[in-house]
Design a protein around this nucleic acid. Structure first.
Length: 289
DNA sequence: AGTGTATCCTGCAGGC
DNA sequence: TGCCTGCAGGATACAC
Protein backbone atom coordinates (compact mmCIF):
# COMPACT_ATOMS: atom_id res chain seq x y z
CA UNK A 1 0.00 0.00 0.00
CA UNK A 2 1.82 2.97 1.27
CA UNK A 3 4.79 4.34 -0.57
CA UNK A 4 6.83 7.41 0.23
CA UNK A 5 4.05 9.98 -0.45
CA UNK A 6 1.51 8.11 1.66
CA UNK A 7 3.92 7.71 4.56
CA UNK A 8 4.89 11.37 4.30
CA UNK A 9 1.21 12.35 4.38
CA UNK A 10 0.58 10.25 7.46
CA UNK A 11 3.64 11.74 9.11
CA UNK A 12 2.43 15.29 8.51
CA UNK A 13 -1.00 14.49 9.86
CA UNK A 14 0.37 12.82 12.94
CA UNK A 15 3.09 15.26 13.86
CA UNK A 16 1.08 18.00 15.57
CA UNK A 17 -0.68 15.57 17.90
CA UNK A 18 2.16 13.16 18.46
CA UNK A 19 5.41 15.11 18.65
CA UNK A 20 6.04 15.93 22.27
CA UNK A 21 3.37 13.57 23.56
CA UNK A 22 4.07 10.90 26.12
CA UNK A 23 3.13 7.27 25.67
CA UNK A 24 1.13 6.20 28.67
CA UNK A 25 -0.20 2.84 27.60
CA UNK A 26 0.18 0.08 25.05
CA UNK A 27 -2.51 -2.39 24.05
CA UNK A 28 -1.53 -5.27 21.82
CA UNK A 29 -4.44 -6.82 19.95
CA UNK A 30 -2.58 -8.60 17.14
CA UNK A 31 0.89 -9.68 18.24
CA UNK A 32 1.82 -10.85 14.77
CA UNK A 33 2.67 -7.27 13.71
CA UNK A 34 5.36 -7.27 16.40
CA UNK A 35 8.35 -9.33 15.24
CA UNK A 36 10.01 -8.82 18.61
CA UNK A 37 6.98 -10.11 20.44
CA UNK A 38 4.37 -8.12 22.39
CA UNK A 39 6.48 -7.52 25.48
CA UNK A 40 9.12 -5.41 23.77
CA UNK A 41 6.54 -2.66 23.22
CA UNK A 42 4.52 -3.28 26.35
CA UNK A 43 7.61 -2.98 28.52
CA UNK A 44 9.57 -0.52 26.44
CA UNK A 45 7.12 2.22 25.49
CA UNK A 46 5.04 3.36 28.47
CA UNK A 47 6.40 6.49 30.12
CA UNK A 48 8.48 7.56 27.17
CA UNK A 49 8.14 10.82 25.35
CA UNK A 50 8.04 11.08 21.57
CA UNK A 51 10.69 13.63 20.68
CA UNK A 52 10.12 13.74 16.95
CA UNK A 53 8.54 12.03 13.98
CA UNK A 54 10.59 11.18 10.94
CA UNK A 55 10.31 9.25 7.72
CA UNK A 56 12.92 7.08 6.07
CA UNK A 57 11.79 5.47 2.83
CA UNK A 58 8.46 3.85 3.63
CA UNK A 59 9.19 3.71 7.34
CA UNK A 60 7.62 6.01 9.89
CA UNK A 61 10.08 6.59 12.71
CA UNK A 62 9.13 7.81 16.18
CA UNK A 63 12.22 9.19 17.87
CA UNK A 64 11.88 8.53 21.57
CA UNK A 65 13.32 10.06 24.66
CA UNK A 66 15.62 7.62 26.39
CA UNK A 67 16.75 7.15 23.45
CA UNK A 68 15.49 4.72 20.90
CA UNK A 69 13.18 4.49 17.94
CA UNK A 70 9.76 3.04 17.28
CA UNK A 71 9.89 2.04 13.63
CA UNK A 72 6.62 1.42 11.81
CA UNK A 73 6.40 -0.20 8.39
CA UNK A 74 2.85 -0.23 7.08
CA UNK A 75 3.18 -3.19 4.74
CA UNK A 76 0.28 -3.34 2.30
CA UNK A 77 -2.67 -2.27 4.39
CA UNK A 78 -1.30 -0.66 7.54
CA UNK A 79 -2.84 2.56 8.86
CA UNK A 80 -1.97 4.88 11.70
CA UNK A 81 -5.14 6.55 12.89
CA UNK A 82 -5.53 9.27 15.46
CA UNK A 83 -8.28 8.78 18.00
CA UNK A 84 -11.11 10.96 16.68
CA UNK A 85 -11.24 9.15 13.40
CA UNK A 86 -10.07 5.81 14.66
CA UNK A 87 -13.12 4.73 16.60
CA UNK A 88 -15.14 4.71 13.43
CA UNK A 89 -12.44 3.92 10.94
CA UNK A 90 -10.44 1.24 12.65
CA UNK A 91 -11.91 -2.09 11.70
CA UNK A 92 -8.75 -4.08 12.23
CA UNK A 93 -6.90 -2.62 15.18
CA UNK A 94 -3.60 -4.35 15.86
CA UNK A 95 -1.94 -2.08 18.42
CA UNK A 96 -3.21 0.91 20.37
CA UNK A 97 -0.96 3.53 21.92
CA UNK A 98 -2.42 5.80 24.56
CA UNK A 99 -0.88 9.26 24.38
CA UNK A 100 -0.85 12.11 26.88
CA UNK A 101 0.11 15.59 25.71
CA UNK A 102 3.44 16.61 27.17
CA UNK A 103 2.73 18.44 30.39
CA UNK A 104 6.17 18.48 31.90
CA UNK A 105 9.38 20.24 31.04
CA UNK A 106 9.90 23.34 28.97
CA UNK A 107 6.72 25.12 29.92
CA UNK A 108 5.57 26.40 26.57
CA UNK A 109 2.68 27.52 28.69
CA UNK A 110 -0.60 26.75 27.08
CA UNK A 111 1.25 26.02 23.86
CA UNK A 112 0.58 22.37 23.27
CA UNK A 113 -1.11 21.61 26.53
CA UNK A 114 -4.57 22.43 25.30
CA UNK A 115 -4.48 19.04 23.64
CA UNK A 116 -6.38 16.23 25.20
CA UNK A 117 -5.20 12.64 25.63
CA UNK A 118 -5.36 10.74 22.39
CA UNK A 119 -5.14 7.23 21.09
CA UNK A 120 -3.00 6.25 18.15
CA UNK A 121 -4.19 3.04 16.54
CA UNK A 122 -2.14 0.87 14.30
CA UNK A 123 -4.73 -0.82 12.09
CA UNK A 124 -3.85 -3.46 9.51
CA UNK A 125 -6.22 -5.85 7.72
CA UNK A 126 -3.57 -8.12 6.32
CA UNK A 127 -0.99 -7.62 9.06
CA UNK A 128 2.02 -7.51 6.78
CA UNK A 129 3.14 -4.36 8.58
CA UNK A 130 5.48 -4.26 11.57
CA UNK A 131 6.21 -2.15 14.63
CA UNK A 132 9.66 -2.47 16.16
CA UNK A 133 11.41 -0.84 19.06
CA UNK A 134 15.04 -0.30 18.14
CA UNK A 135 18.04 1.24 19.83
CA UNK A 136 19.60 4.17 18.02
CA UNK A 137 22.40 1.93 16.93
CA UNK A 138 20.05 -0.73 15.55
CA UNK A 139 18.14 1.95 13.71
CA UNK A 140 21.31 3.40 12.20
CA UNK A 141 22.27 -0.04 10.96
CA UNK A 142 18.82 -0.58 9.51
CA UNK A 143 18.82 2.79 7.85
CA UNK A 144 22.18 2.07 6.28
CA UNK A 145 20.68 -0.86 4.38
CA UNK A 146 18.27 1.54 2.67
CA UNK A 147 19.16 3.50 -0.43
CA UNK A 148 19.12 7.29 -0.73
CA UNK A 149 15.99 9.38 -0.26
CA UNK A 150 14.83 10.28 -3.76
CA UNK A 151 13.72 13.76 -2.71
CA UNK A 152 16.97 14.63 -0.98
CA UNK A 153 19.47 17.07 -2.43
CA UNK A 154 22.10 14.39 -2.83
CA UNK A 155 19.89 12.30 -5.08
CA UNK A 156 21.07 13.79 -8.35
CA UNK A 157 20.64 12.62 -11.88
CA UNK A 158 24.37 11.92 -11.99
CA UNK A 159 24.24 9.80 -8.87
CA UNK A 160 21.32 7.88 -10.32
CA UNK A 161 23.19 7.30 -13.56
CA UNK A 162 26.17 5.96 -11.65
CA UNK A 163 23.99 3.67 -9.57
CA UNK A 164 22.18 2.30 -12.59
CA UNK A 165 25.14 1.66 -14.80
CA UNK A 166 26.15 -1.67 -13.40
CA UNK A 167 22.74 -3.28 -12.99
CA UNK A 168 21.18 -5.68 -15.45
CA UNK A 169 17.94 -5.71 -13.47
CA UNK A 170 14.80 -4.36 -15.18
CA UNK A 171 14.49 -0.71 -14.31
CA UNK A 172 11.09 -1.18 -12.65
CA UNK A 173 12.52 -3.88 -10.35
CA UNK A 174 15.53 -1.69 -9.68
CA UNK A 175 13.28 1.15 -8.51
CA UNK A 176 11.36 -1.15 -6.18
CA UNK A 177 14.51 -2.36 -4.44
CA UNK A 178 14.68 -0.38 -1.20
CA UNK A 179 18.43 -0.90 -0.98
CA UNK A 180 18.83 1.15 -4.14
CA UNK A 181 16.33 3.96 -3.61
CA UNK A 182 14.19 4.24 -0.51
CA UNK A 183 10.45 4.76 -0.63
CA UNK A 184 9.49 3.93 -4.21
CA UNK A 185 6.78 1.31 -4.65
CA UNK A 186 4.91 -0.15 -7.58
CA UNK A 187 2.56 2.75 -8.26
CA UNK A 188 5.15 5.51 -8.44
CA UNK A 189 7.80 3.38 -10.13
CA UNK A 190 5.38 2.78 -13.00
CA UNK A 191 4.24 6.40 -13.10
CA UNK A 192 7.78 7.74 -13.13
CA UNK A 193 8.74 5.42 -15.99
CA UNK A 194 5.74 6.57 -17.97
CA UNK A 195 6.73 10.19 -17.53
CA UNK A 196 10.24 9.35 -18.63
CA UNK A 197 9.06 7.35 -21.64
CA UNK A 198 10.98 4.25 -20.56
CA UNK A 199 9.84 0.64 -20.89
CA UNK A 200 9.72 -0.82 -17.36
CA UNK A 201 11.44 -4.01 -18.53
CA UNK A 202 14.57 -2.31 -19.81
CA UNK A 203 17.78 -3.39 -18.06
CA UNK A 204 18.86 -0.52 -15.81
CA UNK A 205 22.25 -0.16 -17.37
CA UNK A 206 20.90 0.32 -20.88
CA UNK A 207 19.40 3.71 -20.01
CA UNK A 208 21.35 6.53 -21.57
CA UNK A 209 22.10 9.76 -19.69
CA UNK A 210 19.20 11.57 -21.31
CA UNK A 211 16.78 8.87 -20.20
CA UNK A 212 18.23 8.81 -16.71
CA UNK A 213 17.74 12.53 -16.46
CA UNK A 214 14.11 12.11 -17.56
CA UNK A 215 13.63 9.32 -15.03
CA UNK A 216 15.17 11.37 -12.26
CA UNK A 217 12.89 14.28 -13.04
CA UNK A 218 9.85 12.06 -13.52
CA UNK A 219 10.38 10.27 -10.24
CA UNK A 220 10.77 13.45 -8.24
CA UNK A 221 7.82 15.13 -9.87
CA UNK A 222 5.57 12.14 -9.34
CA UNK A 223 6.55 11.82 -5.70
CA UNK A 224 6.16 15.53 -4.99
CA UNK A 225 2.85 15.68 -6.81
CA UNK A 226 1.56 12.72 -4.88
CA UNK A 227 2.60 14.27 -1.57
CA UNK A 228 0.75 17.44 -2.51
CA UNK A 229 -2.32 15.35 -3.31
CA UNK A 230 -2.07 13.52 0.00
CA UNK A 231 -1.14 10.19 -1.60
CA UNK A 232 -3.08 7.65 -3.64
CA UNK A 233 -6.06 5.80 -2.22
CA UNK A 234 -6.96 2.80 -4.32
CA UNK A 235 -8.63 0.87 -1.60
CA UNK A 236 -7.01 0.74 1.78
CA UNK A 237 -4.78 3.73 2.23
CA UNK A 238 -5.95 6.35 4.71
CA UNK A 239 -4.16 9.31 6.24
CA UNK A 240 -3.90 9.85 10.00
CA UNK A 241 -7.37 11.40 10.10
CA UNK A 242 -8.92 8.52 8.17
CA UNK A 243 -9.16 10.52 4.92
CA UNK A 244 -8.28 9.48 1.40
CA UNK A 245 -5.51 10.61 -0.91
CA UNK A 246 -6.50 12.22 -4.16
CA UNK A 247 -3.64 11.27 -6.47
CA UNK A 248 -5.57 8.31 -7.87
CA UNK A 249 -7.26 10.42 -10.52
CA UNK A 250 -3.89 11.55 -11.80
CA UNK A 251 -2.43 8.10 -12.40
CA UNK A 252 -1.40 7.78 -16.03
CA UNK A 253 -0.73 4.04 -16.19
CA UNK A 254 -1.01 2.25 -12.86
CA UNK A 255 -4.17 0.15 -12.80
CA UNK A 256 -5.21 1.38 -16.26
CA UNK A 257 -4.62 -1.74 -18.36
CA UNK A 258 -6.69 -1.58 -21.54
CA UNK A 259 -7.53 2.09 -21.12
CA UNK A 260 -6.27 4.77 -23.47
CA UNK A 261 -2.95 6.49 -22.97
CA UNK A 262 -3.62 10.17 -22.26
CA UNK A 263 -0.90 11.17 -24.68
CA UNK A 264 -1.33 8.85 -27.69
CA UNK A 265 -4.54 6.90 -27.13
CA UNK A 266 -2.85 3.49 -27.31
CA UNK A 267 -4.23 0.96 -24.85
CA UNK A 268 -2.14 0.72 -21.69
CA UNK A 269 -0.49 -2.66 -21.33
CA UNK A 270 -0.03 -4.78 -18.23
CA UNK A 271 2.80 -7.28 -17.95
CA UNK A 272 3.94 -9.26 -14.94
CA UNK A 273 7.54 -9.73 -13.95
CA UNK A 274 9.35 -9.84 -10.67
CA UNK A 275 6.07 -11.06 -9.24
CA UNK A 276 4.34 -7.71 -9.78
CA UNK A 277 2.24 -6.04 -12.42
CA UNK A 278 3.87 -3.38 -14.56
CA UNK A 279 1.78 -0.91 -16.54
CA UNK A 280 3.03 1.08 -19.51
CA UNK A 281 2.12 2.62 -22.82
CA UNK A 282 3.65 0.48 -25.57
CA UNK A 283 3.99 3.47 -27.84
CA UNK A 284 5.15 6.24 -25.48
CA UNK A 285 7.44 3.82 -23.67
CA UNK A 286 8.50 1.87 -26.73
CA UNK A 287 11.80 1.07 -28.33
CA UNK A 288 14.47 3.67 -28.44
CA UNK A 289 15.09 5.20 -31.82
C1' DA B 1 23.72 -10.93 -9.87
C1' DG B 2 19.49 -12.19 -11.82
C1' DT B 3 14.75 -14.64 -11.82
C1' DG B 4 10.87 -17.06 -10.29
C1' DT B 5 8.26 -18.86 -6.45
C1' DA B 6 6.38 -19.09 -2.04
C1' DT B 7 5.17 -16.99 2.40
C1' DC B 8 2.82 -13.97 5.72
C1' DC B 9 -3.10 -12.55 5.67
C1' DT B 10 -7.69 -10.69 4.43
C1' DG B 11 -11.08 -8.87 1.34
C1' DC B 12 -12.99 -7.78 -2.88
C1' DA B 13 -14.28 -8.24 -7.83
C1' DG B 14 -15.48 -11.05 -11.55
C1' DG B 15 -16.89 -15.39 -13.84
C1' DC B 16 -19.94 -19.22 -13.79
C1' DT C 1 -26.94 -16.86 -3.70
C1' DG C 2 -22.60 -19.48 -3.58
C1' DC C 3 -18.11 -21.03 -5.02
C1' DC C 4 -14.02 -20.40 -7.31
C1' DT C 5 -9.99 -17.83 -8.99
C1' DG C 6 -7.10 -13.95 -9.22
C1' DC C 7 -5.55 -9.79 -7.53
C1' DA C 8 -3.68 -6.22 -4.18
C1' DG C 9 0.54 0.50 -2.51
C1' DG C 10 5.32 -4.84 0.79
C1' DA C 11 9.19 -7.54 2.33
C1' DT C 12 11.77 -11.66 2.74
C1' DA C 13 13.62 -16.27 2.07
C1' DC C 14 14.53 -19.88 -0.98
C1' DA C 15 16.20 -22.62 -5.04
C1' DC C 16 18.13 -22.28 -9.51
Amino acid sequence: MPELPEVETILRGLRPAVAGARITGVEVIRPDVLPQGPDALRRGLPGRRIEALERRGKNLVFRLQAPGRLVVNLGMTGRLLLSGASGQESRHPAVRLRLAPDSGGGGTGSGGSGRRPATLVYDDVRRFGTLELLTDREWRERSRTLGPEPLDRGFTSRALLRALERSRSPIRSWLLDQRRVAGVGNIYANEALYRAGIDPRRPARTLDPVEVRALHRGLRRVLRGAITAGGTTIRDYRNAAGGRGSYGGRLAVYGRAGEACHRCDSPIRRVVFGGRSAFFCPLCQGERT
